[in-house]
Design a protein around this nucleic acid. Structure first.
Lengths: 165, 165
DNA sequence: GGACCAACGTTATAATGTACCAATTCTCAA
DNA sequence: TTGAGAATTGGTACATTATAACGTTGGTCC
């Protein structure tokens, strides 16, 4: 999410919520903005720290988790299960479950919405008579850039977030 | 995993480890057996409780996590990310990453190894120049049985494990 | 204004996972 | 067989992630 696009993204989220009769409150918007400034997933406690940094008011875990719950419900963010972390949704127009390419080198996450994957998952579920309600698809590996870099096989670099203390 | 099949499964695991020069010790075998007795995922602390129940010796979390780490490395169990839990692998002959159909009704998990899914994931990764090292594919929903049952839409039933305190 | 309800503040605690070091057990060569 | 070294386990403490419970605030509608 680039800085100029951030405002636009937040406004789009605001509009979406209004349309649904939901309220993107100041607190929720702050959390969304924190996630919107990075393409890396952030843990709840990293978000908490960011909130504490940007305001004098004290903030506790439930506040963050409540905001995250709301944003998840409205498809404005996604949860990355394998990292216990959250990331802004890149196309929140319609609710969906994306697929995530998670680079263990640089920490960047690419969100996909691939029909072939969704079809194959749907087929497999159907074959078992299973009704899928929440698909979790996360590929952990190395992005193109990190594969090209010689040091790529070792520890992650890049900004703090999750996993890089 | 049925009771008569359990011994056979454990022995297969033992043979696999031997072949690789790894040691399926008594402790590791105990953990594997606990997972083998259910088709439901178990949290680390549920396994810990089971261990404590079946022996007078005291046991601490690191013991369980070390055993789980070993079993994961050797493909004898899988980790279910969305549940923070572990489940026995149904076909450990070769290392692999399965796909999991997780019923939120009865808690049962079906492990798949579907070529269409794996192909579509591979395609998507390749399109992005991404090298997938650890795919996480978990579908949370309702199994055929639970869909058929009228009460199915509400809370989970069945044996303890994860999520049913 | 007052009743209501959603959102938020606050404290405490549960659940999951790991760092660290000591004690034990196993293996293999001398 | 025995002792050195490696692998495994025991055990304490603590870090990280998440939620329960209850009171307070603030906006909305009559």
């Amino acid at each position: 999410m680039t800085e100029p696009g951030l405002e636009q993204w937040l406004n789009q989220a605001d509009a979406l919520c209004r349309r649904r009769g939901a309220r993107l409150t100041a607190q929720r918007r702050r959390v969304l903005a924190i996630l919107g400034r990075t393409r890396r997933p952030l843990g709840a406690y990293a978000i908490l720290d960011a909130l504490r940094d940007q305001s004098a008011r004290s903030t506790a875990p439930p506040t963050v988790y409540r905001a995250l719950e709301f944003l998840l419900e409205h498809g404005l963010i996604h949860r990355i299960e394998s990292l216990h972390a959250f990331i802004g949704c890149t196309h929140p127009e319609h609710p969906h479950a994306g697929q995530f390419l998670i680079c263990r080198g640089c920490g960047l996450v690419e969100e996909k919405e691939d029909d072939r994957i969704q079809d194959s998952l749907g087929q497999t579920a159907q074959d078992s008579g299973f009704k899928s309600e929440r698909p979790v698809v996360e590929l952990i590996g190395l992005c193109a850039d990190c594969r090209a870099r010689p040091i790529s096989a070792s520890e992650p670099i890049g900004q703090p977030g999750v996993g890089s203390p």
